[in-house]
Nucleic acid binder design. Structure first.
Lengths: 351, 351
DNA sequence: AAACAAATTTACATCGTTGTAAATTACACT
DNA sequence: AGTGTAATTTACAACGATGTAAATTTGTTT
């Protein structure tokens, strides 16, 4: 009773129609639960469908409807704690809306990122949710495609595109103020990555600075730690150099959890206690934050909200909404854990 | 110079043909780099393609060729360190072979898992790589579909399917022997999860047992810690209860990294040192192992090899290979880190 | 220059479904 | 019973590409 009888071709709509003695359109109507079908017809057709093991061919359906019911999610890497939870949430949100998700890995490569939007082939997906790592607003502005796109993340994007992000500057400010609330005065930022032109770090730095200034603290540029690359190793090197060169700080705000956890490991190796001597805050609230030692306080974007909103906005575009790009700020909060505990329980720095 | 001129429909093959004054088939030939096309023709057509901004419609192509060049990857959750690296590797391997990957999350739900194979719609993908969490060999045997499938992971699968896994029993044995090499005699296993009928744990337990027996150690069933669910919390509860009830052990082999890292946290909270008092080994060698404290020794399946092989086997099936299921053992090794260090550097248990 | 073979190009049917609009049937009301 | 209207069902032409096989052009050989 399988889809094909030995060696014969797949069962088509027309085969069901013949078997049931009706037109193909009626079978189609039954398949789609069209309401104006008499119960007799319906059950007769359903019986044939069952007996023949008919399954609709999605490709043919797509060709005539022009809809794929698929969206692409373009992210730098799947194997990254933040992006994998983002992917998870977006897949769930899409499935709720009867869409499927195609993952496109751009590997943080600007050519691959542009390819995603250049859209060399048509009819693959109905729309794209795109979190760029390298590509700049200028690159994007040149590309004017007709596939709907929703941008995620902190990169500046052309106003033409819908865009969802958290208020990076405000979030950094909240994080800095939390550290200040713990009595920390000299607060470092890890890290300013060489060649990172995506703009995320700049915004976080701006918030970091504003947080300090609002509290009447001076901004010391030697506390903005420069990092060679996005690898945890180079983050460790940066922190280590700072310590070796005698730069003192009691708080550390990191641009992401990977850097933060690397910093935790380094501080431990150097015999510096967290949070007693240096309180640390990460960014993204990934799985790493839950399992590190000490557990990591982290800026926590509401991924659920981002995913739901992104899918919603994209579907609106797919369904024909026009007009210039919408710009949405997603909610976030600071997830407090041991590395920068709640203010009440805070002990003053010991050094 | 974009794909569509204001408001007009998409450019089709036939539009290019008319513009260039040739037949549609010639345009198609140029698009596909068919060799028997004169240079004149080719450049004339390419010019038209460029000027009109033509992009081939994948759906139409698929309908006539019957190929989607997409494969599905069905996994319990994207947001899991092991599965996200698996997804990453499979996407890369597939892209290398000119396939795209559709991620299907089964949420460890047996209905959803069956749905993946029941294949309610045809022509979505050319084949499926499927790592089940719940579904048993029996459930699967009933389903006889024509979409090629490659199974991953430790669940028993019907002989009809191709299947790739690491030798769980042997790997567990290696891990246990490593602990024994560190001088540990009482070695516990975390954990036997209630309701886990996927068979993975059973095989690991078998290897655990064999490793002990080979070393002439007795197998104490109270050292096989029962866990209520797959959550880290329940793993912690299980370890805690064992300690509270006076069960003593110097080595701990865990069924996955999440459990292992949860155990590390609990041991720390209990004031038990790792690896001095209890050496711990995880499984899957996920990102957690790199960032935990202490860093985690873990059984490390060669994900790269698994992904490449899975894609290779699936494509062979897609291209028509018939015959009964092939069963492949993938390579693995024990990634040594601090929680169960290399034998040389090992210190004897202190308690 | 004719004849044949090989290399290009073309015409046309086809993939399997759904949209449109026309044809039919069923139903209600004089 | 006859007519008008609404509810079903159907016929047929798309959707946009590629495969097949035939038609044409080009090139070679005698």
């Amino acid at each position: 009773m399988s889809g094909t009888v030995n060696g014969s071709r797949r069962v088509r709509l027309v085969d069901v129609a013949r078997h049931a003695g009706v037109s193909t359109k009626t079978v189609s109507n039954v398949v789609h639960n069209y309401e104006h079908v008499t119960p007799d017809m319906r059950s007769k057709v359903q019986k044939s469908i069952r007996e023949l093991g008919y399954k609709p061919n999605l490709t043919a359906r797509r060709l005539v409807t022009g809809k794929t019911s698929m969206i692409a999610l373009a992210i730098p890497e799947t194997n990254h704690p933040y992006f994998s939870s983002l992917a998870d949430a977006i897949v769930k949100a899409a499935v709720d809306r009867d869409y499927r998700v195609l993952i496109e890995q751009t590997d943080g490569d600007s050519e691959k990122e542009l390819d995603v939007l250049r859209d060399r082939e048509a009819g693959l997906v109905d729309g794209v949710i795109f979190q760029p790592a390298k590509v700049t607003s200028l690159d994007l502005a040149e590309i004017q495609e007709d596939t709907p796109v929703v941008m995620l993340g902190e990169a500046a994007s052309p106003i033409a595109f819908d865009h969802i992000m958290i208020d990076n500057s405000a979030a950094a400010e909240v994080a800095v103020k939390h550290l200040i609330g713990l009595g920390r005065k000299r607060i470092a930022f890890l890290g300013d990555v060489r060649g990172d032109n995506a703009g995320a770090t700049k915004k976080r730095l701006a918030g970091y600075q504003k947080g300090l200034e609002d509290a009447g603290l001076s901004v010391d540029t030697s506390l903005v730690l420069q990092v060679e690359s996005f690898s945890p190793e180079s983050a460790k090197v940066a922190v280590q150099e700072a310590i070796r060169s005698g730069i003192e700080f009691e708080g550390l705000l990191c641009r992401d959890d990977r850097f933060a956890v690397a910093a935790l490991q380094l501080l431990r190796d150097e015999g510096i206690s967290t949070p007693e001597q240096i309180a640390v805050i990460g960014w993204d609230d990934t799985v790493l934050a839950r399992y590190s030692y000490p557990t990591l306080t982290s800026v926590s974007p509401n991924i659920q909200a981002i995913a739901t909103e992104a899918v919603q906005m994209l579907i609106e575009r797919i369904e024909g909404l026009t007009g210039s790009g919408r710009h949405v700020l997603a909610p976030y909060n600071l997830h407090i854990r041991e590395s920068a505990p709640a203010v009440k329980a805070a002990s003053a720095p010991k050094n």
